[in-house]
């Protein structure tokens, strides 16, 4: 059997839930071991397994289970958009009537150039906006064109809105976790059984 064709295809992540999922000590060790990146070697999962003192197959199985559980949202590259030539990024915010947020959120998140779309609380009087989208573009004019397209397509002409271009990026490291800090009570039942 050609080992390379042995896939462990993850199922799509379940609908988001607020509650944390119970993790075993082995899952926590794995989460910590790979959070800074996968090893750039021919058999990366075997390298991780060697570090954790378990089998390659078990590492693969656990990663697949963590993906299914929605704990790993994605396994892949994290790009630095400016370095990729996306010189402008804007946070586009809207003050949408509460009862229309869901519908407009779905409309706005449908554009391929929208990379994040969240509902967040208003902070009155300083901050009246409750729907946030990130847009990236080659330059500011490209971003503004996309902004106008969103307004037209989703019927947002009369909705109060603002475009907050970023001027400088001070820090972009991504989140790091020390999952061993998760409450011990939640560690009893691993989502994947195993000795690793």
């Amino acid at each position: 059997m050609d080992m390379r064709t042995r896939h462990y295809t993850p199922q799509p992540a379940a609908t988001p839930v607020a509650a944390p999922i119970t993790l075993g000590a082995a899952d926590l060790a794995l989460i910590e071991a790979i959070q800074r990146g996968l090893p750039l070697v021919s058999r990366p999962y075997a390298a991780v397994a060697a570090r954790l003192g378990c089998g390659e197959e078990e590492v693969i199985r656990r990663i697949a289970a963590l993906q299914q559980a929605g704990i790993i949202k994605r396994l892949g590259v994290v790009v630095r958009h400016r370095e990729l030539g996306y010189g402008a990024n804007a946070m586009v915010v809207w003050d949408v009537p509460d009862e229309e947020v869901a519908e407009l959120g779905r409309c706005l998140s449908g554009f391929e150039f929208v990379t994040l779309c969240y509902r967040r609380p208003r902070r009155l009087p300083q901050w009246p906006y409750n729907l946030f989208c990130m847009i990236h573009g080659r330059d500011r004019e490209a971003v503004m064109e996309k902004f106008r397209l969103m307004i037209e397509s989703c019927g947002l002409e009369t909705i109060p809105k603002a475009v907050l271009f970023s001027r400088r990026r001070f820090k972009q490291r991504g989140a790091l976790y020390r999952p061993s800090a998760v409450a011990p009570a939640t560690r009893a039942d691993p989502i994947v059984e195993g000795s690793c």
Binding site: G37, G70, V77, P179
Partner: peptide, 14 residues
Amino acid sequence: LSRFGPMYHAERLG
């Protein structure tokens, strides 16, 4: 690239 690896769901990790 800033990283090559997993993107975790922070809230689900507790």
